[in-house]
């Protein structure tokens, strides 16, 4: 791709193709991890932020961005990790939230608990554990269909 046709919108579109390494049904853009994209001549700058300070997926995310953009012909990329403003679940897109639910993970809710079971949609749910398989999730259970499910923690 020549430098003349490269646009910020194009880079965002490419980044939207990159799945989150731990929850591959949503992209790193849906998750709100990509904070900014800027272009200077043919140099691309991408700013990312961690969900949790110790999120082990950050390195993988950085590597995916590097290889995705290199594959698209971006020759000069600078990646910056920024912690402020601190990531919040509010940054997750609506598309991201519905994809999560379709995948079986309850979307984050402002009141701090899942609205319903992602499987049978019952609202009778209870917490099993505050933590789950990744730093960003907790374990819940449905009292109707009895299925355990993961809930994306709200921070």
């Amino acid at each position: 791709m020549s430098a003349q046709t490269l646009t910020v919108e194009q880079v965002w579109e490419w980044l939207e193709q990159i799945p989150d390494p731990e929850i591959p049904v949503i992209s790193i853009v849906d998750l709100g991890v990509v904070r900014d994209v800027t272009l200077q001549d043919d140099k691309v700058k991408v700013v990312i932020t961690p969900t949790y300070s110790g999120c082990p997926a950050m390195r993988e995310i950085a590597e995916s961005i590097t290889s995705e953009l290199a594959g698209r012909g971006v020759r000069q990329l600078s990646l910056e990790t920024r912690i402020a403003p601190a990531w919040t679940t509010d940054w997750m897109s609506d598309t991201g939230k519905s994809k999560l639910e379709a995948y079986g993970i309850a979307a984050p809710q402002a009141k701090g608990e899942p609205k319903r079971c992602p499987q049978c949609k019952s609202t009778a749910v209870e917490k099993i554990s505050q933590f789950g398989s990744t730093p960003c999730k907790a374990q819940w259970r449905c009292l109707d269909c009895l299925e355990p499910f993961e809930y994306f923690k709200c921070i």
Binding site: G54, F131, G132, P135
Partner: peptide, 20 residues
């Protein structure tokens, strides 16, 4: 198991804060 996961996740958060 739930406690094991909770402790490991807590440790991960703490190490993440340490890095900063």
């Amino acid at each position: 198991l739930e406690e094991d996961i909770a402790l490991a996740n807590t440790a991960l958060d703490l190490i993440g804060q340490t890095q900063l």
